[in-house]
Each structure stands twice: as C-alpha cells, then as structure tokens.
Design a protein around this nucleic acid. Sequence first.
DNA 1: GAGTTTGAAACT
DNA 2: CAGTTTCAAACTC
Length: 957
Amino acid sequence: MDSPEIRKIKANTTSSSDSPPVQDSPVFSYINNLSPIQPVKASHLAQGFPGLNSPPLVFTSPRINSHRNTSFLKRPQYQPLSSAEKSKTQDEAKKFLDGPVDPKITQLHMRLITDSQDCETKIRVESQQCSSSEGVDEYLADPSEVDCVDSTQSASPCLKQSNNVPETFTGSKETTLYDNKHNTGTDLGTEAKAPSEQAKEDLEGKQTFDAKPVKIIEQSDGELPYDECPNIESGLSIDNAYKREYRQHLHDQDRGGKHQDDCDHTPQSPPGRLQIVQVYENSAENVGAISKGMIGNMILHAPKARSEQGGMHRRCLQFEEAPPCATGKRDCSLSSIQEVNNSEPPSSMGESKLVKLSYADLKSTSKRQMGTPLPPRCGGNSPSTVPKPSGIGLHLNSIVNAAPLVRGTTRSIKLADHYIGVQVMKSASVMSSHLPDNVRCRSISLNMVEKDSAGPEDRDESETSIAASSAVPSSPHTVVFEGHGPTHEKRGFDAENIDDYEECKQSSPKKKRKKTSSTKDSDGTKRCNCKKTKCLKLYCDCFAAGVYCAESCACQGCFNITDYEDTVLETRQHIESRNPLAFAPKIVQHEEEIQFTPSSARHKRGCNCKKSMCLKKYCECYQANVGCSSGCRCDGCKNVYGRKGEYIPIEHGVGKDNISDKAGKERIESTFHEKLEMVATKKDILSTELYDSHNLTPLAPSFQCSDHANNVPKSPCLPTSYLPSPESDLTIISSYEKSTRSPLRHSESSDILLETSKELSDLGSYNWRVDYDNIGIVDTFSPRCDAAPTTCHITPMSDLCSMAMASSTSSKTSDWTNASQVQLCPGSHGLSSDSSLHRRSSPVTPMTRLGGTKSFQGLDFENGLYDILQDDTPEILKDSSTPIRSLKVSSPNKKRVSPPHSHNHELGASSSGALRSGRKFILKAVPSFPPLTPCIGSKGSSIIQNMSNLQDKGRKK
DNA sequence: GAGTTTGAAACT
DNA sequence: CAGTTTCAAACTC
C-alpha cells in the first residue's frame, strides 16, 4: 500500500533533494500525500525559510519537534513518559509556549498531530521502503523521512554495533530503513513497531528503544520547538537536511544515543541512521543486501547527483558530520564518527539508564553531549574541525561584538541552514576522508576533548570518546552505534548518557567556563552563563547572537537549544516584534563614516557608558572594537577606536593607524592576533569544512568565476579601507572557516597562517585585518564589492588578492582570490541583518564557494592566510560594498540593511559578473532575511508569552 | 572563587 | 520616553 506510494514519494523527495529548488515540490507533494495537515507545516517552513537561515531553521526544527511531540502525544505510552520525564523542562517549555500564546499551542498541537500523522505515514512508508531498501533514492528520501523517524536512531546504535558500519553513507539507505523501523517503534509504536522493533531488538537485543523513544517523546513534547516534520524538511531539502543533522547530532549527543526523537533526530541521525540502517539491514533484513556497496554507491552518487542536487550531497555529508556540527556546541567531533564516538561514550556510560530528563537536563545534556564531543571545538587543534562543531553545534555563541571570527563560525553553525552547509562541508570532508578520517576525527576529538576538558567532565568525555575511537577501529560499528544512538535520540533519550552528561554538564560546563574565565571558548564561540533568563533574552550573548548555546555554556535552564527551537524562534520573534533591530548586527558602518573611514563601523545603538569611559568591555563599542559615534550617549568617551563625535577618517590602509590611542592599536593587534589564532584553529576545523564544501558545492563554477577575483584586483583599495564590523567578520569567518578548513587539513596551515598573518601585518595588511574585525557587517556582503569596483572602496577580492600577493602567497593568489570572492558572495547572501541569518545563509554560499575553489585545497596552507586576508578584505569590502544592499533586499526587518550603505547598494547593482553570479546564486539559495521578520511577525505575541512564562519558570528554578 | 562594578536589557 | 529594575558580563580582589 504505502510502500509504492511512499517510494514514489521518496523518489520525489530524493529528486527534490537533488535539486534544491525542486525539493519543495516533491516534498510538498509527499507531505500532502502523507497528511493534509503538513501543508500547514510547509507553510511554516516556507515562512521561516524564505531566507533559509534562522527562520527556516527554527521552523524546521520546531516542526520536527512538533511531529515528534505529536506522535508521542498521540501515543499513550509516550505521553506518560513525557509527563514524568519532561516535568521541569516541559513545564518550562510549556510556559513559554502555552503561556505566551494559546494560538501557538493550538498550532503546535495541530502541527504535532499532523506531524505525528505524517511521521506515521512516513514511517509506514519508510518501513515498507526499508524492506525494499531501494537504494540511494530512498536514502536520499530518507533524510526527509528520517526526520520523522528519529526514533530509529536509538536502534541505530544497536545496529551499528551489530554491523560495523564505519561509513555513514552506506548507512544512509539503511538508515532510512532503520529510521522507519525506529519510527514505527517509537512514533507509530503500533503498526510499524512490530516489524521494525523486532528487527531492532534482534539487532540490539535490547528493549531500551522503547523506553528511550518514550523519553524522547516526552522531551520532544516538552520541546515543542523542534520541528521534525520530515515533509517540510524534504521540501527544504538541503537546509532541512542540515537541520536534521544538527538536530540529530544534538539529540544523539544529548540522549546519548537513545532514540527518540525520531522526527527530530532523524535529520540528525542520518549518520547514525545510516549506520543503524546498515546494521539493521544486515542483522534484520537486507543485511548484506544494502551492504556497503550500496552505501558506497550512495555516497558516490550522492555527491555527484548532489552536485546537481546539492541537497542530497549535503545530506549525506551532514549525516555524518552534520550531526556533530548541528550539535555544534555539543559535539566537537566533527565527523559523524566523532559524533558516534561521543555518543558512544554516553551510550556506553549507561544506555540502560532511562533518565528522566527535564528539558533543562536534556538541553544541558544535549549541550554537553554536543559540547563534549565538541571539545574538539576548542580546537585549536589541527582537527580544528572540532572547534567548529561548537559553532556548528547550532550554538549561537558567536556574538557580533566579541570575536567576529568565532562568531561567524558559530553563527554559521547555529544557523541551521548555513550551519548545515558548513556541516555538510565538514561531513563531506569527513566522508571523503572516510573511515580513517573518522578515526582521525575521533582521535582529534579526543585530543580536543583532552585539551578542552579542563574539568573532569571533559575528561570523562574524552575518555569516552577515546574509548569510542579505540573501539571504532576495532569495532567502529558498535562504537558508532552507541554514539549515534544516543545522539540521535536527542538528549532525553539516553538516560545513562544524559545522566553522565548532566553530571558532566553541571560540572564540566561550569568548570569549563570557570577554567576559561573568558566568555569565549577556545573556538572563539561565546559562552553564556545565564542563570535566570534561560538564554532567551538578549542578556544572553548566545541568544543575542542568534546562536544556540553550546556545551561550554554554563547557562542554567537553557532554552536556547535546538530542542527548543520553537521556543527560541518565538522568543526571537517576540523580541523582534518589539525591536526589529534587536538581533540586527550591533555594529554597522555608518554611511557617512564609511566614505571617510574604513573603520567607520559603529555600534548600531551606541553605548551609554558612564564610568568605563568606553575603555572597557563594558562598552559595547569598545568590545566590538569600534569607535563611539554620535549615537553614543557615553560620558567621557575615550574609546581608543574612535571617540564619540570624532570621526576617525580611516584612510585607505590607514585604518588602525588612525586609531587615536596606541593602546587601541595594541589592542587591535592583540585582537587581531587572537583572531588570527582563532582563524588558525578554525582553519583546521574549516579545512574539513572546505573539503566538504568542495565536494558539495555545485556552485563551484561560479566561484571559479570568482577567481576572476583577480579581475577585481582592480581594487586598489586595500584592506586599509576596510571598515571593521563584527558582522562582516562573521560572514567572513564562515567563509574563512570553510576556506581554512581545507588548509586545516594541513596541520601546518595554522602555524603558517599565523606566520603569514604576521608577515601581512608587516606588509600593512595587518591593519587591514584588524579593521576587518570591526568591519561592518553590512559591508561583508559582496554585492558592493562586485559592483563596487568602480567606487570601490575596495573590493574585498582585490584587496585580498593584493594582500595575498603582498604576503608572497602570490602563487596561490588565484585560489585565494577565489576564496575571497566566494566568501564575499556568501556574505552578500548572508545579508540578513540578523546574525542568525548571516550564519544560516552564509554557510550555504560558502559551501558553494568552496566547491568552486577546489584549487584552494591545494593551497590549503596558503588558504589559511588567504582566509585570514580574505576575511579581512571581505569584511571591508562587504562593509563598504554590498552588505547593506543585500540586507535591504533580503532582510524583511530592514534593520541593518538600509543604514549602512545605501550607495553601496547602487554599486551592488553593478556587481561584476563573476561575483554577481555567485551572489545571485546565493540569493536564490538563501533568502537570507525573510526568516526573521516573517517568522517574528507570525508568532510574536505567543513568543512573548512563552518567553515570559519561561522566564518565570527559569527564575523559579 | 567570590564579590563588585558596569551597562545593556527589560520592565514599569 | 524616562526612570527603575533585572540581568549577565566584565572586572577586581
């Protein structure tokens, strides 16, 4: 019955995934078939995703959650568990959701119902399909469906154990099957369960699944935010897949591998799923049939097809890596393997344990899991990939103000879409690296953990990860399985893991923070320490940055987690409803200033310092490394970056020199060095990402065109003209990371980068770079750059090129330029005034860029430098050039868009062909801003109410 | 590590 | 819109 239809649907979905644009139609059709309600979801998604980024993410995740929730809710079994376990977290979540807006609740319920229905239908179909185990197509389809099936994750571990499936890809197909089974077990619980569950049991021989699913369900219920709707995801295609992966990672990490969250996890689970599926098949059904060969084919095809279908490819990659990335904060482990390892520890810790997870606990666990693995994030290690995870983790740590680079990374990560792209890149790289890579990743993650883990928790994690890694080689499957299972299941799932995680979280996160007194992680991602706001107010740097809290965060009762995407989204919307610019980049270049000063970047709202004289980080302007402007209400301003009222016309190249105070320069330098370091670390991380991106990016061609960057060289404008803008940094960072990732591959790259950076600084590039940090976000977007050439402040590209040339990296300049262009393009895409948007959007473009810039890989080492330079230049360029325009165009909020550079927009109109192509591409792919405002508008009131409720609860806590 | 200071965010 | 309170980061000891 369903199977035929389902298959068709899957085919459709796959096709859709193949061609992102098409995805929607197939997905929609599929959804429609599944359940009438879904369309509504789709609408939500549509709203959220117009931009791709934040909004989409939110929507998607929430949907998924809703599905899960609904499914769970529907099921009596689940409900009981949910009520008991969820307890606090759920209550809080409910407060948020319920309290705020009844309509919302109703909607959520509807969603849940629909989702559950959809999931069920999907599950059925999938189960059938699984039996048939069609192949790549199915596999591809799986992602969307898998979301619904999250529960499979739990099972997956077992499967993995039974079957060693180092390759996530191979698992992909199987994963779908597994998911189906899993879903049936959890969600359906009734129909599909019997077969699927039996199979699972056979494989695992454990009953934990059932219990786990229940837990998950509860969590999911509480977590309304999650969107699991597979359908929607399918429609979203790449974005969804990424999100899914995130979620899965998060869930897996959180849960420690237990199942659950079928819908939610499914996306995340993909890697796990794949493995699981394989295992499942092997053990239960197809076992040999699907086999690795299939997987291999899948993988190969996926990438190829993906080139066409980007989505598919990404998904595959995502599955492996994305999850970790998704977890971002949680899993440092970049690759799925790492994730697995991470998850494994938890599972190993105590799979049997059914921990009642309150939301907070779950979240915390999820974070921890995420983070624990993420430790790699810290990553300064070559494996830098790990570091990103933190960012990737969806954690939105990155804040505009602080370290732009880091922020950028985190943002990209957090932004489901972008993040996904990044993850995909990573995953791709991982995939490319293959199992060996996985092992490496594991080792890396371990290393990262060790490094990061100052606290016992970390140690534990590291140990677990190590164990996992060790196990993996011998029996990767089992290890992976464990890890995935928990991770996929989300937090609640694995009680054992959760407990462990919780312990770790409680102790480790705080400890970590304590250890790292700084609010920033090694990765540069920000950490928050919110105690009363639940990370749902602007007080929370993470939340304010549009990023999910990471493991490293020491926040209490955090709701800024993927599990609570809905809540987060609602809250954001609510805040935005009050202040549309609340999430807009705080640092913006003033058009006035821009003309004269590259460092014209200023704090959007200005500071109100009374005692700090704008010489301490209390001052947001100072913290952002930007000068105070007329908008500041500060008293006795002594901002080294520019005092209120005094404009520091930063001449081209002058940039920092202009800085009035030597101290300011020093600071800048220090910050710059820090950034460089960050970059270096990130590069390592990024290397993988780049790698992935290369694989993934269909856009590569456009990027190659970007190579024309050389064309740009025209830009006499050198870095000096760059305006510092955190945002730009972010965007740049994301791209940078990507580019850097490939470099990272070369462990040496980081060091080299540092050296090169020094050299550059000597050359004068240093100033530029420094400014880069400050460069306004707006500028980050390339549009201007493209067009700008004429006006040119500087095309980032040209600047970059010049820089690169100067640095003696000439040989690689082309690549570098390409990279820069790529970055620029992404930046343009990013547009979104909101950081989140940038993050989300940027990742995608970067990916494409990366793909285009395969040449980079060769240059990896240089890339690192290039990346840095590019980042700088891009920022400048972005600042001066296009960001604004793009923002205006894309961002519904209009927050930043307009202010910074109207004239730039003009330039943007005339962007150069290559850049244009890239930009256009991005724009299409990423409706940058739409998400924020639109979403906000829809749910503002409810969000507010939810927020207030949550806050109240949090306070109580 | 605990406590204080600071200024933004939130609230009234 | 202004004043007050709350909050979390930054800072100090």
